[in-house]
Design a protein around this nucleic acid. Structure first.
Lengths: 228, 228
DNA sequence: TCAACCATTATTGTTTACAATATCAAGGCT
DNA sequence: AGCCTTGATATTGTAAACAATAATGGTTGA
């Protein structure tokens, strides 16, 4: 066996997925025993998963009280977005290497999926795919460390978007992604960087920090179907 | 009581300190039971600490084999440094706010300590204080998220320096720190940013990736005196 | 009627013992 | 002699029982 790390990753992914799909609302309680049953696991493993997720700022551990889906504050949201902007804009201005042909291909494939999700009005898939696009970009132009840092930020950002997204808006314009790729292939890094800055500012303008908590502390009944 | 998180932080800090003070060489085995005795703790707590430290890339967990002090590869070292450079240089070019008077005061105090450490030829203190200077800068000019990201990178960097530092060199020139502060107070962000770039490149040139493992897998005998 | 208090219940946190696995040493085989 | 096998030992990984703490609900008294 030995695949305990794998199993924990599976549980962590499933939890993240449930959060990002808005099946688990921010603030929801995550009881250890219940999660253990849902995932056919035990409390010890669940405990490690929750500890790790708390380091990713996806869940918050309150000593003696348990684990909850995080509710990032508006300030935290602004800081996360500003940090992403700093990293991504700077990297595009001076990338570590050029886009390879197969990198461009990877990006195009993601864009195609984005188009599908857009056509299907699948907002959740769009958030995920947009993240994948940005992450792939960082991976191709930057290095592994930057990728893991930005990956964490994008994950936090996804949670933030599910929490604060203004209704009737789509947060990440896929047309921007298209233009971004063209600029990079043309080696116009100045314009690419500027577009990325505008693009990320566009995300911020889609957020509404006034609309208060979606306090729907959904029961883990919701989680039952995703144990596979 | 309930201060279990505090105790774990204490243990984690002590371990980090031991690593950065070169009392624990990269690659050293970290047996759980032994650590539990040294810190008058239990295996469960040690286990959590090691899990967290592995997320900080200070220790590496090998499934079934245990925990070891990390041995960052040359590639990882370069990536960490490049990531730091990207973040710090960009932030200085366009800081989120200006340096307050008390911020300048904090920085000056750290610089004074650096001078002391330099006079005392205390290389370990210098690495630590240099990190503190950079971290304070990020905190004052940036935001909390950037600070925590950079804090992690600086910690990894410290481990990298202890591992790869060329002999007879001092890695972080405190004269640069002085000039940096002056430029920032004069609001000359272009020059400050350029100086930071040179400064961090200076660190890289102090590293020697050829000199192979300092495989001195020191026994935890060494750890005994730091249990307080 | 509302608020404060106490007992009950449920959940988290810790310790313990146990099982699985890897390391190490000795002995035998080629 | 050197390498592989085999058993002993130590360490990691897991599960389960226990203790401590926080949430819950009902009762009492003003």
């Amino acid at each position: 066996m030995g695949s305990s790390a794998k199993e924990e990753a599976r549980i962590a992914d499933a939890l993240c997925k449930a959060v990002l799909e808005r099946k688990l609302a921010p603030g929801s309680k995550l009881p250890e025993e219940e999660l253990a049953q849902i995932f056919r696991s035990n409390r010890a493993k669940i405990r490690r998963v929750l500890l790790l997720l708390s380091r990713s700022h996806i869940v918050t551990l309150e000593p003696g009280r348990g684990a909850f889906v995080s509710r990032p504050s508006p300030q935290e949201a602004r800081d996360v977005l500003a940090s992403r902007r700093l990293i991504e804009v700077s990297l595009l201005a001076r990338p570590y290497r050029r886009l390879s042909a197969q990198a461009a291909e990877r990006l195009r494939r993601i864009m195609a999926e984005e188009a599908q999700a857009h056509a299907a009005h699948d907002a959740i898939a769009m958030i995920y795919l947009s993240g994948q696009f940005h992450l792939t970009l960082i991976e191709e132009l930057g290095n592994k460390v930057l990728k893991s840092i930005t990956g964490e930020l994008i994950l936090r950002m996804s949670l933030i978007i599910t929490m604060y997204e203004r209704q009737n808006t789509t947060c990440c314009l896929s047309s921007d992604h298209h233009d971004l790729l063209e600029l990079l292939l043309a080696h116009d890094y100045v314009e690419a960087s500027a577009l990325m800055a505008r693009h990320l500012e566009g995300i911020e303008s889609c957020l509404d920090f006034h609309r208060e908590p979606a306090t729907t502390t959904i029961l883990s009944q919701i989680l039952q179907p995703l144990k596979d």
